[in-house]
């Protein structure tokens, strides 16, 4: 596989000022909980999850979430936001190794 994680965002391209809208996100990730054992060797499989999700709009953080091992593989996250000016919505996921995956989307207000 070329990339470790692949993200999808769904948000409206243009919105009205002050009108709340929904942002949906989905990212592919195995979310290894750290509690499973390798069936053959009996060794613990090390934890490897996305532990932080941050959404920022025009560089200002608007939403964040700490994720824990109970979050399923390929996590889905949806939230609502209000935009008062056009800008870029930037989403960032961080995994246990500190690697980040980012995806952005331009939103027009008018």
């Amino acid at each position: 596989m070329a990339k470790k994680a692949k993200a999808r965002i769904k948000a409206p391209k243009s919105v009205t000022v002050g009108e709340p809208f929904e942002v949906k996100t989905l990212i592919s990730h195995k979310m290894e909980s750290g509690q499973r054992k390798d069936k053959k060797t009996g060794e613990k499989i090390p934890r490897m999850i996305l532990n932080k999700f941050v959404a920022s709009y025009n560089d200002a953080q608007i939403f964040s979430a700490d994720w824990h091992p109970a979050v399923s593989a390929n996590p889905y996250m949806a939230f609502h936001m209000i935009a008062n000016e056009s800008g870029t919505l930037e989403l960032t996921w961080t995994d246990d190794e500190g690697e980040t995956f980012a995806k952005s989307k331009d939103i027009k207000v008018g």
């Binding site: 692949k6 989905l26 592919s28 390929n74 949806a78």
Partner: peptide, 15 residues
């Protein structure tokens, strides 16, 4: 169609 995680594989298949 967005929340369905199967579409991650559809997208990768398209690539």
């Amino acid at each position: 169609e967005f929340g369905n995680p199967g579409f991650i594989w559809v997208d990768y298949g398209e690539e």
